[in-house]
Structures are given as structure tokens and as C-alpha cells.
Amino acid sequence: MSPLAIARVTVALLSGALFGYGLSLSGMVDPARVLGFLDIASGHWDPSLMFVLGGAVCVAFVAVAIQRRLPKPVLDTQFHIPERTDIDARLVGGSLLFGIGWGLAGFCPGPALSALTTGLTPVLLFVAAMIAGMLLHDRVLAKSS
């Protein structure tokens, strides 16, 4: 493996660890907090997750502004960024589906994966079902349509 490739793996590990820590610190890892934000009629709405998204987008916005002035990333020959701009039914339908699942249990992919190490049974069940859903989409649904 080239030194550059080793550096990329190290950065990915560090970035993942920061992401996992951020999910725990922010409260995103707690489904009760997430549902307290998504359930707007509960009488005790919890707006804190807006601060999570706000803080994350603000910092990421600075990174994107820097990225646009760079010809390439530090450790690779080019940026790997989605270039599509079309709005199609799969984007909207998939996102609506994701939202329904998110609102049912309070888990989205990052927090659920990150919480695996707690060993809680519902987390294990959610992640197993999520991976099954991803495989079902990638290997069956996406190929038949």
C-alpha cells in the first residue's frame, strides 16, 4: 500500500471517530431525543437537534468554501463529489421512505451504527434490518428497475 493510501485510511479512521464522538455529544445517538425533535405535537418539543444540524452545516460550509478554491484534495488526485443536479422520483421517494423509518424508531444510519458498541438489542436489530434493506435495494430493487 502506498504512503498516500495509508494516509487516506488514517484520515478516514480519524474522521469516523470524530463523527462518532460528535453523534454522542450532540444527542443524535439517542432515539428519544430524535423523536422529541421530530414529534412536534408532544407538548414538550425539543429543538436541540436544530442546533446539531446548524452547527454541522456552518462548519461544513467553511470546508466547502475552502474546497472550491483547491484544485484537488490533499491526499488524492481529485475530489469525489456527486455532480447530479436532477430531481427524480427515486430521490424524493427514497428520502420520504427514509424519513418514515427515521420517525418510527428515531434512528438514522450514522447514530445506529455508532451505537452498535453499546450492545443494546434494538440497536442490533435496527442495524441488521438496515443492512438487509440496503442490500435488498442495491442487489435487487436497483437492478430490476
Binding site: G94, L97, G101, M134
Partner: peptide, 13 residues
């Protein structure tokens, strides 16, 4: 919820 999240996030990229 896990199944729907898995399918939805991959479909919605």
C-alpha cells in the same frame, strides 16, 4: 424502521 431506512437511504442516495 431499519428496513425502510436501509432501502430509502440507498434509493435517495
Amino acid at each position: 424502521a431499519g428496513l425502510i431506512v436501509g432501502i430509502g437511504t440507498r434509493m435517495g442516495s
